[in-house]
Design a protein around this nucleic acid. Structure first.
Lengths: 316, 316
DNA sequence: CTATCTTCATAACATGAAGGTATATTGATT
DNA sequence: AATCAATATACCTTCATGTTATGAAGATAG
């Protein structure tokens, strides 16, 4: 004999509020409705649920046991309501994001931290990839948002793109680096130092190669490669190596005084750091909220970067 | 926005069985029914529950969360069903019993032990009392069954009575007692020994007094009084005291060799040990089962007592 | 003990949520 | 492209549940 969860919930409400009438009020129903349901249950169970002819309604032992389950059900139902509400409001859920490693580590991770401070019920699943993978992952549906530098003219078919920062790259080194103190750097100055190469296949790597080629350096010395941002920064700090990083990443590190940018303008294809997503499929509220958050954070960040950049003379 | 527990349960069933059609089978409903409910929920929640246009039906994150609650609800509902079933079958619940202390301790406690071995979900609440209290407690409704010696002609108004054993009392002593070895005991032999008096107010006490008076002993020496069965048996074992006990209590102790009965017939009002209850109010299944159990156990016990009793010559 | 108050039970009716069957639609598969 | 299997839709039906009105019964106070 199956018992309707709603009925169990009703029993709990009746007991907890101390009577049919009170229970009816608590449940927003009429008293006869409860009365009838109780009678029906008693008939089906073959046992009384409330002692007969007792006016302060006294629940039977069986009724107590059933009401216990009813309370569990009530609780679960309430939890579901809450989940649904949070979810719809974009305050709970999951956002699956993916992006270029250096930028995710160097900039986005900070924002995720503050975001999760505000919305602890939103889980972020992060992966790494470059434009090709990202497009694929978005199309397949494994990822909700991709964050990477994109040439605005060549946004992949079927994706929306929202730029968040200019994708300018710079030459980075430790603040203690000999070049860091020079006010005017000539390109020849750069030549002697070893390089930390960004992951092969990344735009950064291409930029490093082409920039150096432009200076005339074809065979540059790569002292380290394959590491993620954390390794790169450690190695920069402990050596005289140079590397190429998005300026925003260097900027975010500025308070830790681990990395600095050389005031040299690197020529590279114009790109915008931005967010990619598929607009043709429904965007979950939590994802939308995260995207909006990124956009607003970055508009602030872009302003701060802009202000600081004005004081620097970038040479070619 | 309140969510119907049944709907949550449905989501769980759909996910767990892997599709609408399978879920429908699991829930004993038609596929369109589930389809429609899901659609309705999606409309009300404002979010999809299953990804659109994916044929192996893929539940949304939200749907998973809701289904989690649905499983909790399913579980609670199932538990309720089980409780109700056990209860109705008299395999779960509570029986509140009360009875005369010596008999409860000496005979009933054993039976409760085996009973609870068979029906661990039935809780027994035991209290003590004599006929007056017991009647009162039964009438008030604090107790479901009373067990005590009753003169069958004077069953209190409004109570049913079922005899389970002849209420015969005997003089009891330690097996090491000087009288225990005598094959023929004269009443004068008894006079010198001190007595352990059963609780004042108990029928046993009355029986002791009147039996001794009949022998001619008016002033008997009471060496101990007020104790429950455990104390009485200890003291009997360590002294030459005598006492009066229901023969069934002595019989139940026979395997421990702590107590023996003197082959002397005690004159006392004819009583039957039995079970009292109010038949005008509904008997809970667990109580009924316990009562039936008592009756069947006692019919076996009565037979064993009878057999053993035949070998003994009871003198007056 | 009676009068009165409160609370529960019952009756009669209304309605809508949910179920069923038949069938169209749409991903998946070959 | 054709076929298959699973889901969505349309339409009808029914029964659980809700409502209001009212009767019955336990509790309470004078």
């Amino acid at each position: 004999m199956k018992i309707d969860p709603n009925h169990l919930h009703m029993l709990a409400a009746i007991i907890d509020s101390g009577g049919l009438s009170e229970g009816a009020i608590a449940l927003n129903k009429s008293q006869p409705s409860l009365s009838r349901t109780v009678a029906m249950l008693e008939a089906r169970l073959g046992s009384r649920l409330f002692e007969k002819g007792k006016r302060p309604l006294r629940p039977t032992e069986l009724c107590q046991s059933l009401a216990d389950q009813g309370r569990i059900i009530l609780h679960a139902s309430e939890a579901a309501r809450q989940v649904a509400e949070l979810y719809s409001g974009g305050k709970a859920g999951t956002a699956r994001i993916s992006g270029t490693p250096i930028f995710m580590d160097g900039v986005i991770s900070n924002m995720i931290a503050t975001f999760q401070g505000a919305f602890p019920e939103i889980a972020i699943h992060q992966t790494y990839g470059y434009l090709g993978d990202l497009t694929e992952q978005l199309n397949v549906g494994n990822v909700d948002l991709a964050i990477c530098p994109v040439c605005p003219d060549t946004v992949p078919e079927g994706l929306s793109f929202k730029p968040i920062l200019p994708g300018r790259n710079v030459i980075a080194c430790a603040p203690s680096h000999p070049l860091a103190r020079k006010s005017a750097i000539k390109l020849e100055d750069i030549a002697p130092y070893p390089w930390i190469a960004p992951p092969a296949g990344s735009p950064l790597y291409e930029d490093l190669r082409s920039a150096l080629a432009r200076i005339g350096i074809k065979d540059f010395k790569v002292s380290f490669t394959g590491g993620s941002l954390a390794s790169i920064i450690s190695i920069l700090a402990g050596s005289e190596s140079l590397t190429v990083l998005p300026y925003s990443v260097v900027f975010m590190q500025s308070n830790t005084k681990n990395v600095t940018a050389l005031p040299v303008r690197l020529e590279h294809p114009s790109r915008e750091l931005g967010v990619l997503w598929r607009d043709d499929r429904p965007i979950r509220p939590a994802v939308l909220r995260f995207r909006k958050y990124l956009e607003s954070e970055f508009s602030g960040l872009a302003k701060r970067i802009e202000e600081k950049g004005r004081n620097i003379v970038w040479r070619n």
